[in-house]
Design a protein around this nucleic acid. Structure first.
Ligand SMILES: [Mn+2]
Ligand SMILES: [Mn+2]
Ligand SMILES: [Mn+2]
Ligand SMILES: [Mn+2]
Lengths: 150, 150
DNA sequence: TCGATAAATTAGACAAGGCTAACTTTAATA
DNA sequence: TATTAAAGTTAGCCTTGTCTAATTTATCGA
């Protein structure tokens, strides 16, 4: 009779823990996601993505970008020839596209909801990494419905 | 004429950087916020908040909690007498209450929107830290309107 | 009241993502 | 084409949050 009494709240402890676990997971992919998304954006806007510009857009220093790009390279998302534009691999392009869509949906959702465009863009940068497939689908539906009604 | 040509996108570079900056900021307060919120919840539910239970709820080890509690103590959010329940200071209680409210609003908002309760709780754990005052107000308004219509 | 058990802490390692300072390399231009 | 400015890298430091292993300490039930 020394066992911990399993009660109604037993399951919810694991559920709660898994929520926190998911947040930690999300934070581990966040840097990679933001970088590939930004690289794709720069290539689209400028025809080239250079580390110095990534640093500027993110508000970090060049060495930070240098170090982080090493991870992207190591994980197979980019190819880099020094002093040439960064290139996304197929995997990189694929991830970037998924991130771009998710980002766009979150921003459009917030705007449809009534948040100002600047703040929507601001908040989306963090929120996007914590939105499950289910929630994203709900966001998407809301945007679609709002667009129709308009 | 060596100056960088200031164009329309000049402002938006800073804006974009400030978004990423805000995300980094949010992540710096996140641990403290989750801990005080959880401590308040445990005190409310159990009458006591013990480190071992915090570890369980967060899905981390006891030494991790021990180390993080040192920060909460250092920053004046808790008082701790070993082997007694953790106590929140006034500042701690205040922060915990703000976090609890924000958390509740985010969860209720997602549910009102059509997300399942489990997923709403899951996603809220990360989203809550990236919601500005403006967005939170919009969420709150949406929940209120939904409740009325019901 | 004492001794077993659970709780908590300490020590030490590691990975990630920031930074500054110093150096190398490329590219633009005079 | 030779200089120089800009871009990029390297080295090394810091902080945060995680872990394991080992140790200390308090509590509680026999
Ligand atoms: Mn982001
Ligand atoms: Mn993004
Ligand atoms: Mn949280
Ligand atoms: Mn986050």
């Amino acid at each position: 009779m020394t066992e911990t009494t399993p009660q109604a709240s037993d399951r919810s402890i694991d559920t709660q823990a898994s929520g926190f676990e998911a947040v930690r997971q999300a934070h581990q992919s966040e840097m990679v996601e933001d970088y590939v998304e930004l690289i794709a954006e720069l290539i689209h806007q400028n025809g080239a993505a250079r580390p110095v510009e990534i640093a500027e857009r993110l508000g970090v220093t060049q060495p930070t970008v240098s170090k982080n790009l090493a991870r992207l390279k190591r994980e197979g998302f980019i190819e880099q020839i020094p002093y040439r534009s960064l290139q996304l691999t197929d995997a990189g392009r694929q991830l970037a596209e998924a991130c771009r869509m998710r980002h766009r949906i979150v921003v459009e959702f917030l705007i449809a909801l009534g948040v100002s465009p600047e703040v929507a863009e601001h908040d989306a940068e963090g929120i996007e990494h914590h939105v499950s497939e289910e929630t994203l689908a709900v966001f998407k539906g809301f945007v679609r419905r709002t667009d129709e009604t308009k």
